[in-house]
């Protein structure tokens, strides 16, 4: 009988329905000599599902999100995205998989000195054969598409404004437009509204979930906000000390269980 990582991947792929975008098995991560951040995470997310990943600070949410795209390399375990096992594949293949996933960060991570439009155009970098020359060579069709993405997040009128002059909420919307520019099949958002005021946070979460619904995208977001998790997610996964402590569909009686995750 096969064993080890290859066997695990075969097992995972063999037992996973095709409509599953994310499969994680036995994921472990530790930074340096510190305690393990992730301890044997098993998780699968179906296509089109909206999942909230909750947990206290240091529970491992951000590390798990980064491990999903191999932005942080796991120490052990498997990540399979869209049926592609990321361990051991060539960097080019990893980049192809990453291009299918829009990742929105807490600090939006826009390039500050560039315009909103230029930042949105970056979303096409993963599919541009010109790579670094892409921005200067971006043809009219690409700019039209970027403008359409900005329009979808309600910021077409700020296309030429520098990113470092935008408000927090506007910046996060540009980051979402950049993700849309990827023509993604999945959105990952790492505490996308943590740095926003409550009103801007609600707006951004509304935007996120409505876009995901319209496009039929898989959406996984991390949050500390139980209300956001209960309102916007179909399923809630709770992390505690690097382990999954809760994995339930969103129901009315879940609030007290969620509170336990932060206890």
């Amino acid at each position: 009988m096969p064993h080890g990582v290859a066997a695990l991947a075969n097992h995972t792929l063999a037992n996973t329905p095709l409509a599953t975008d994310i499969v994680v098995e036995g994921l472990e991560k530790r930074f340096g000599d510190g305690p393990p951040v992730l301890r044997g995470i098993d998780l699968s997310v179906r296509r089109g599902e909206t999942v909230a990943l909750i947990g206290a600070n240091g529970a491992g949410k951000s590390t798990l999100m980064r491990c999903l795209l191999h932005l942080v390399k796991p120490d052990a375990g498997e990540v399979v995205l869209f049926g592609v096992r990321l361990n051991g594949v060539r960097q080019r293949e990893v980049r192809r998989v990453r291009n299918r996933v829009g990742f929105v960060f807490q600090r939006h991570n826009l390039v500050p000195r560039l315009s909103a439009l230029a930042n949105v155009l970056h979303g096409a970098l993963g599919r541009s054969p010109f790579g670094a020359l892409h921005r200067s060579l971006s043809p009219a069709a690409l700019r039209d598409e970027a403008m359409a993405c900005l329009d979808r997040v309600g910021l077409a009128h700020l296309a030429r404004q520098r990113a470092d002059t935008l408000s927090g909420g506007q910046s996060q919307r540009v980051a979402i437009a950049r993700a849309l520019m990827q023509r993604p099949e999945m959105l990952l958002a790492d505490e996308p509204v943590a740095s926003l005021d409550p009103a801007a946070g609600e707006e951004v979460m509304d935007l996120f979930t409505s876009l995901a619904r319209q496009e039929g995208l898989t959406l996984v977001f991390t949050t500390h906000n139980m209300s956001h998790a209960l309102t916007y997610a179909q399923r809630i996964v709770g992390l505690r000390d690097g382990r999954i402590a809760l994995d339930r569909p969103t129901t009315d009686g879940l609030a007290s269980e969620l509170a336990q995750i932060f206890a």
Partner: peptide, 14 residues
Amino acid sequence: PQEALTALGARPAA
């Protein structure tokens, strides 16, 4: 921003 562009599949040169 570098992490963001890496996450969307950009090559290192990009």
